[in-house]
């Protein structure tokens, strides 16, 4: 796993997105927001699992699409029922950011020191 390549991709995407004249139609903002969360979660999960050598394309893609769809469905029904169900997606994805980031961080740091505690403890955990 070479970290700089996805990072470069991310930066290129942001640059392209901002410099483009496109905007999302009004009303879809909330959906895009949770889609961004789901996508970020998948990216972090994918990086983590590939660092652990457990990357599966099927799991990665189904996690991305499934989580994204579920989050959007939550937003849709939350909108209809006047419950902010998107909060559930935000909280879950948000906490997973930190968890995944912590594992990536430890992995990279421990790679140098060669004592990867989290790796052995949470081997069964999957990326998505």
């Amino acid at each position: 796993m070479v970290l700089p390549i996805p990072l470069l991709g991310l930066l290129a995407g942001i640059f392209l997105g901002v410099s483009s004249a496109y905007v999302f139609p009004s009303g879809y903002s909330a959906y895009v927001a949770v889609a961004i969360l789901a996508c970020t979660d998948s990216v972090l999960g994918g990086i983590k699992s590939s660092l652990h050598g457990q990357f599966h394309l099927g799991i990665f893609l189904s996690g991305f699409l499934g989580n994204g769809l579920l989050a959007m469905v939550l937003v849709y029904f939350g909108d209809k029922l006047n419950i902010q169900l998107s909060l559930a997606a935000i909280v879950v994805f948000g906490s997973r950011f930190f968890q995944n980031f912590a594992e990536i961080r430890r992995f990279i740091l421990n790679q140098r020191e060669k004592k990867d505690k989290i790796h052995s403890e949470e081997q069964t955990e999957n990326g998505c």
């Binding site: 996805p6 995407g13 942001i14 997105g17 901002v18 895009v32 990665f60």
Partner: peptide, 20 residues
């Protein structure tokens, strides 16, 4: 695959930024 998703994510973030 992670790179492709990252580009997608970046695009979404960029366009959403414009939208907001």
């Amino acid at each position: 695959s992670v790179t492709v998703l990252c580009i997608l994510l970046g695009l979404m973030i960029g366009v959403q930024y414009n939208t907001v």
